[in-house]
Design a protein around this nucleic acid. Structure first.
Lengths: 200, 200
DNA sequence: CCCCTGGCTAAGCAACTGCTTAGTATGGAC
DNA sequence: GTCCATACTAAGCAGTTGCTTAGCCAGGGG
């Protein structure tokens, strides 16, 4: 091993290919992106991609899986760090909004390119997705059980909450008049209204 | 003219190509769909596509433009047919939800394949989109002016309302346990909560 | 000094892409 | 019956696709 640095040369190259693929997939879609696009954006020849990754699809898989796991992690950490259903929901929505706005490029790939994954990879990603859904659903159901929330359908409400956050990656643009944090504050309030939160 | 029927043979063929393209674009994306896919799904040779359409992109344009115009039309008609800001908002959201659920295949293309349009076509479609946004924004602003709605940011609230409706086309699946109408009723209530509606 | 390994490239293959060309079948007008 | 516009197809062209092959090159260990 020649790895005296924190990250080996191979790891740095892999990271460059990863982020080149992420940007390209976000801008032109998976099928609209060529391996030559990715390689040249990473400053390498097309063949170099295959030194570090099995296929173009594997890059999409790494992006999708990693992106979903990051969201799941954020949700779990946020829920654990707040007390009370109202504060928890507000904090989670805030975190989800900030994430989907700041990382809107990656989030677009994560949420809109799933159909280009292989069956096995898709199943894996959908599994993480189900865990994210479950976290939000439990949070809303707990709030209702406690009497802090009032909604006729906790499941549908949780779908709507996640939906609202995810869709930010579709319309958010850098340099607009709304900051991720500004949207997050507004959406956190919106979320409490949606679940019929009443101060306890 | 040989057109004794209501629709000429050419019009029927164009419609078949249109709906074949719509399904294919929705399933595999614009770049993931080949002209051969579209033609064979419509029961024709690849060359037949070019008898009726200038290019593959033109089909996407027709789908996107038509889809957006249909939404604008629905929104305007619905607003005109209801009285009072609360009833209007509920009716519009209901209509938007039903549309994006029933026509989720087409709506996916309409909302997620815009980047594959030519610059001119994209500009045209974004123009219709801006008019849809404006309708919703005016509706919310009017409700606030009347004192029927209470929200700290009518513009952001209207973006959230549209966002929630559009994202249905991403997650809705036929044959699930939720009907378009069931979701619509829930979302109409959600919308009123989001804008802080108070009975007047 | 030589060699070997990890990281990379030039060249290219077979399949596929959007779209065109040149031509065929059909059915109504006259 | 002849004509002709309309609706279509078989074949193919030039460029592009994902990915492979064969080999080059730097640099550390022996």
């Amino acid at each position: 091993m020649t790895n005296t640095e924190e990250y080996s040369r191979a790891e740095q190259t892999r990271a460059r290919l990863f982020s080149a693929a992420l940007t390209a997939f976000s801008d032109h879609g998976f099928h609209g992106t060529t391996t030559r696009d990715i390689a040249s954006a990473a400053g390498m020849s097309p063949a170099a991609l295959y030194v570090h990754h099995k296929s173009k699809e594997e890059l999409l898989y790494l992006i999708s899986k990693g992106g979903h796991e990051q969201v799941l992690d954020t949700v779990r950490t946020t829920i654990a760090s707040a007390e009370g259903s109202g504060a928890r929901l507000a904090a989670v929505v805030r975190a989800l909004v900030v994430h989907h706005a700041r990382a809107h490029t990656g989030s677009r790939v994560v949420n809109y390119e799933l159909t280009s994954l292989s069956d096995e990879h898709l199943a894996e990603v959908l599994d993480v997705r189900r865990r994210i859904d479950a976290e939000i659903r439990h949070l809303v159901e707990q709030g209702v059980a406690e009497g802090a929330f009032d909604t006729p359908d906790p499941h549908m409400a949780s779908v709507a909450l996640l939906s609202l956050s995810i869709d930010i990656s579709r319309w958010y643009r850098d340099g607009g008049s709304w900051s991720p944090e500004g949207i997050a504050d507004f959406y956190a309030d919106l979320a409490l209204r949606m679940v019929g939160y009443r101060r306890g």
